[in-house]
Design a protein around this nucleic acid. Structure first.
Lengths: 129, 129
DNA sequence: CTACGAACTAGAGCCGTCTCTAGGTCAAGA
DNA sequence: TCTTGACCTAGAGACGGCTCTAGTTCGTAG
């Protein structure tokens, strides 16, 4: 039930490089255990945490902020309010992003519609000839 | 009815640097007119185009792809199908992004809920003392 | 034995997107 | 005349986030 870095890369979609990078950047909640030969052995917990990190990254949280959050978690009970603040702030940003993305989507869809109509009309004319 | 680069920066939210950068990267549909002293003079058209570029950038279209699109527009009529392809492809990517972002949002909201409840329960206990 | 594949570390390199610097021009106001 | 501020160009620099390299060390299979 311990996974190698390669297996974790497969399961998470991160590269082996990225996994080591994340570790070096200190965004893993718990120190990765080492097996024989100094090889990393990941637990399911590690993977779960990584998956959360992936979500945070995907939604644009910078690595240093993930580290801040991770540090709080590592420190243990008592700082839940600070963790909450980080999450709420990020939630705000994501909400904003979604609004913006929707605006972009509207514009693009509008333009696609126009071009589609135009292209169709050309095609129709060609057929009609 | 001609705007300086500074005014355009103000109106678009882009920096003066970014405006020059975009121009150098060839993502302005029409060559920016120059006034006395070689200074850029932007038209409303330029600004409209820039605003579209901003939308495309915001939604993650890389500069080189905006350039591809811009080149097609500059070339004039006849390549609408290609333009449509670029837009549709990007539309797809944006749609995907929105789904992902929603997933992230769900996770974050879930976590915020949990922490909020916890923090509230602590606060209630404190008051209850 | 040898060779292979997967892992290790430290650190360099890369890509995209700006952002800033240096050195200069120009017009208007004090 | 001097200063100020907005602009110009070309090119260097910054930054985030990986990605890759070099040189090793293992364990297992042929």
């Amino acid at each position: 039930m311990g996974l190698s870095i390669g297996q974790v890369a497969e399961r998470t979609g991160l590269s082996v490089h990225a996994l080591r990078f994340y570790e070096k950047e200190g965004i893993l909640a718990h120190q990765v255990h080492r097996g024989p030969g100094g090889r990393r052995v990941y637990t399911q917990q590690d993977i779960d945490w990584l998956k959360m990190c992936i979500m945070l990254r995907m939604s644009g949280m910078p690595v240093p902020e993930i580290r801040r959050y991770t540090d709080l978690v590592r420190q243990g009970d008592g700082n839940e309010l600070q963790r909450l603040d980080i999450l709420k702030e990020h939630q705000q940003r994501v909400a904003q992003q979604m609004v913006q993305l929707q605006e972009c989507m509207d514009l693009i869809t509008h333009k696609v519609g126009i071009y589609q109509d135009y292209v169709n009309s050309i095609a129709a004319r060609a057929v009609g000839q």
